[in-house]
């Protein structure tokens, strides 16, 4: 059977998904990147290989996420696309009539507006990280609540506390103040969800036409309190798909399938790449006052790719 692999390497998590010709998800893998994208991808590939039946053949690979270029070189991806497109493609595969996609991850959040299956507008948080998962993570620690229990706790709230959500630091001092005046933990947790939703809609979602059906994905979608807060604020149903946490990888796999239709042949290097010795190193170029930080990727001690320079002096490898 022919299958397609999608790899999404983000700041917090690395996700892999394998789909068949009919775009059905056969297997998925979710692991933490831990700041080491190469190791995470190799670990993911190893796990994935174990899960897949031997007769399956990978016919195409797509990479996405903030480490998409590095991953693309590592695994030999047929298509390297930004996570915005991958998430939109993943969501419209699941719900073809989708009009709005909310994606909230660990360090960034995006809104994608889709009309008739095509992305027409998008926005990402640029200046501030207050509207992301790390905001909730941080406050959960502060409250002594496990992030996994956060959602269920929020649903138990009777009167959510209003918390200023513009800035993580101000939210924290506001939250502590509310704690001191006797608000219950449930109410505060629900209040934090609402603060995040307000922040998200006012910053990332500013000026965007939010219409149902709305799909909510990314790591934060696991939080039931967030789904409820979105629904209350918008008055529409918010759909959290089954594979909400690996939608980017699914999208990348679908994009790989689309690419293979044209190119016919995959560049996939095989699962063996999980055993190859890949390294990265960086140096500061002193050729001009820009002092660009150039990154080199080495395969078996040989430089196979470079990036990070503004002028392109290093990017093109001498052959």
């Amino acid at each position: 059977m022919d299958t397609y692999l999608g790899v999404d390497v983000g700041s917090i998590s690395t996700n892999l998904a394998v789909i068949d010709e009919k775009k059905k998800v056969l297997a998925w893998e979710y692991l933490l990147t831990g700041g080491r994208p190469i190791e995470a991808v190799q670990r993911g590939l190893r796990e994935m290989e174990k899960k897949l039946a031997k007769e399956l053949k990978i016919k195409g690979v797509g990479s996405t996420g903030s480490a998409r270029h590095l991953t693309g070189i590592l695994v030999g991806a047929d298509t390297v696309k930004s996570e915005i497109i991958a998430h939109a493609v993943g969501a419209s595969q699941l719900i073809p009539e989708v009009k709005t996609v909310f994606e909230i991850g660990g360090q960034d959040s995006k809104i994608i507006i889709v009309r008739d299956g095509v992305v027409v507008d998008f926005a990402m948080n640029t200046i501030c990280a207050a509207g992301t998962g790390s905001f909730l993570d941080h406050q959960a620690q502060r409250l002594g609540v496990l992030i996994e229990e956060f959602g269920d706790l929020a649903l138990k709230a009777e009167a959510p506390t209003r918390i200023a959500g513009r800035c993580t630091v101000f939210a924290e001092s506001d939250m502590i103040h509310k704690q001191q005046t006797g608000h219950t933990t449930e109410n505060i947790v629900a209040g934090l969800c609402q603060a995040l939703v307000r922040n998200y809609l006012n910053n990332v979602g500013k000026g965007k036409e939010i219409l149902p059906p709305i799909v909510f994905q990314g790591g934060v979608a696991a939080n039931k309190g967030m789904k409820a807060a979105f629904e209350e604020e918008l008055g529409y149903e918010v759909i959290v798909p089954e594979y909400y946490h690996v939608m980017g990888a699914i999208g990348a796999a679908i994009l790989a399938q689309e690419t293979i239709v044209q190119t016919k042949k995959t560049r996939f290097k095989g699962f063996e790449v999980s055993e190859v010795d890949y390294k990265t190193r960086s140096f500061e170029c002193t050729g001009c006052p820009n002092l660009c930080e150039v990154i080199e990727v080495l395969m078996d001690r040989e430089v196979i790719s470079r990036w990070g320079d503004r002028c392109g002096k290093w990017e093109v490898l001498e052959k």
Binding site: S66, S82, I84, I85, V119, V120, D121, F122, I127
Partner: peptide, 25 residues
Amino acid sequence: ELEEHSSQTHLMTRLEAFVDLLHRK
């Protein structure tokens, strides 16, 4: 919006998505 913290990678992600959007349109 450009400022001293603007990052190349962040801009690149959004530019790629924008160009993709235009191609699909």
